[in-house]
């Protein structure tokens, strides 16, 4: 019951956050030089044509009026129409959001699992070889540009070894299944197509690994630091001094306490990924949110950009909500 009240309170927080974010994004993008109308009318258009187009898009109204109209639309689930493609933004969002979410969620799960294993491993071998290798590896993974890492992985596993599928999207077209949830792994399973599912996983492997490698450095560092802190704490030394066996010490006394410090940072990294996976989407021809938003940005497609900002902000709030709940589940001292 308390958790339900907590979730309700945090979801209510979404309202002021989204209003603030939408106002800021709405007015700020109109300050960026570049007129979307000029980009969509033919080169031969006259002044009158341009004015007509502007009027059709509602861009002739004062900005506050435009904002209120936009807000009214959003409240009814209408995110406007893309200036460039004339497609309803809501439709694009419904199509592309799951694509990106699936990619970054899997990457995040992989990154967290690997970081916990590597971070704890490093802490237990403090200043020895395993620790050094992990730390240097994390720094290298962090400093490689992710698109370059993606390309290298493609070169190695697709071109070189031939074990990965071509970076041509989420699934081979021959194995495509009807879209239900938009999450390819779920859809293939719903269609009962085991071959499609495996093919989708194969397509996911390289981009997921790339993203995970590129983002896990801060996670590894944080896990390692908190594991070291736990191992130096009185309670860990007490358990050791009472002669508890190694396995129990690591699982019950080290891991659990180390994990309690992870959710907040993981949420931050996750939030960044949702808005920042564009390069990887580009390299792997992933038709996700990032590519779509980037194109919208290039042509000043106001409704697209605004919706993208709203979606990212919502994602941040939700991810941090989940992180706080996980934290409370891991740490009895945290009350929500």
């Amino acid at each position: 019951m308390r958790i339900a009240a907590f979730i309700a309170k945090r979801l209510a927080l979404l309202i002021p956050v989204l209003i603030g974010v939408s106002i800021a994004s709405f007015f700020l993008i109109r300050l960026i030089p570049g007129d979307p109308v000029l980009l969509i009318v033919p080169e031969t258009a006259t002044e009158a044509d341009i004015a007509a187009a502007r009027e059709r898009l509602g861009l002739d109204q004062p900005v506050p009026v435009q904002y209120l109209r936009y807000l009214g639309g959003v409240l009814q689930g209408d995110f406007g129409t893309s200036i460039a493609t004339n497609r309803p933004v809501a439709m694009d969002l419904a199509q592309r959001l799951p694509v990106t979410l699936e990619l970054v969620t899997l990457a995040m799960l992989l990154a967290v699992a690997a970081s916990v294993a590597l971070g704890v491993h490093a802490a237990r071998r403090l200043n020895r070889l395993g620790d050094m290798v992990t730390r240097i590896g994390a720094i290298i993974g962090n400093s490689l540009p992710e698109f370059w890492l993606g390309i290298m992985l493609i070169l190695l596993f697709y071109q070189g070894l031939g074990i990965a599928p071509a970076p041509s999207g989420r699934i081979d077209s021959a194995l495509a299944v009807p879209t239900v949830t938009g999450l390819i792994t779920v859809d293939t399973l719903l269609a009962g197509r085991w071959d499609s599912f495996l093919n989708a996983l194969a397509h996911l492997a390289l981009p997921v690994v790339t993203l995970a490698v590129a983002t896990s450095a801060p996670l590894i560092r944080s896990v390692r630091a908190s594991a070291i802190e736990v191992m130096q704490s009185d309670n860990y030394r007490c358990a050791a001094a009472h002669g508890l066996p190694e396995g129990r010490l690591v699982n019950r006394y080290l891991m659990r306490q180390t994990l309690t410090r992870l959710p907040a940072l993981a949420a931050l990294v996750f939030g960044n990924l949702i808005g920042g996976s564009v390069l990887i989407e580009f390299v792997f021809s992933w038709q996700g949110l990032g590519q779509w938003a980037l194109r919208g940005m290039q042509v000043r497609d106001y409704p697209v950009i605004q919706s993208f900002v709203l979606v990212t902000a919502t994602a941040y709030v939700l991810v941090f909500l989940v992180a706080d709940i996980v934290q409370a589940m891991l740490d009895p001292r945290v009350r929500i």
Partner: peptide
């Protein structure tokens, strides 16, 4: 241990 509060596993 000297300080029992910190010597017990908090979680």
């Amino acid at each position: 241990f000297q300080n029992p509060r910190s010597a017990l596993n908090p979680v």
